[in-house]
Simulated assay, not measured.
Amino acid sequence: MKIKILLFGSVFVGLTSFTAYESEVTYVAIGTTSNIIYQSLDGEKLVAKSDCIGCHKIDKKLIGPSYLDIAKKYPLNDKSVNYLASKIIKGGSGVWGSIPMAAHSTLKKEDAKLMAKYILSVK
Rank of each mutant, 00 (worst) to 15 (best):
M1I: 11
K2C: 03
I5V: 14
L6W: 00
L7F: 14
F8Q: 10
F8I: 15
S10T: 15
S10R: 00
S10G: 11
F12A: 15
L15E: 09
L15R: 03
S17N: 07
T19F: 14
Y21S: 11
E22H: 12
S23H: 11
E24K: 14
E24D: 05
T26F: 10
V28T: 14
A29K: 12
I30F: 08
G31N: 14
T32V: 11
T32D: 11
T32A: 09
T33K: 12
I36T: 15
I37R: 14
I37M: 11
D42K: 12
G43E: 05
G43H: 04
K45M: 10
K45L: 14
L46A: 14
K49P: 00
S50H: 02
D51V: 03
I53H: 02
H56Q: 08
K57A: 15
I58W: 02
K60E: 13
K60G: 02
K61A: 11
K61S: 06
L62K: 07
L62M: 09
G64E: 05
S66W: 03
Y67F: 15
Y67D: 05
L68N: 06
I70L: 08
A71E: 07
K72W: 02
P75N: 13
P75H: 10
L76S: 08
L76I: 09
K79G: 04
S80I: 02
V81Y: 03
Y83L: 14
K87A: 04
K87D: 05
I88M: 05
G91K: 03
G92V: 04
G94T: 07
V95M: 11
V95S: 07
V95D: 13
G97K: 04
A103W: 04
S105Q: 11
T106V: 09
K108Q: 11
E110Q: 10
A112V: 03
L114A: 02
L114E: 07
M115T: 02
M115A: 03
M115I: 15
I119T: 03
I119N: 00
K123D: 06
K123H: 13
K123W: 02
K123Q: 14
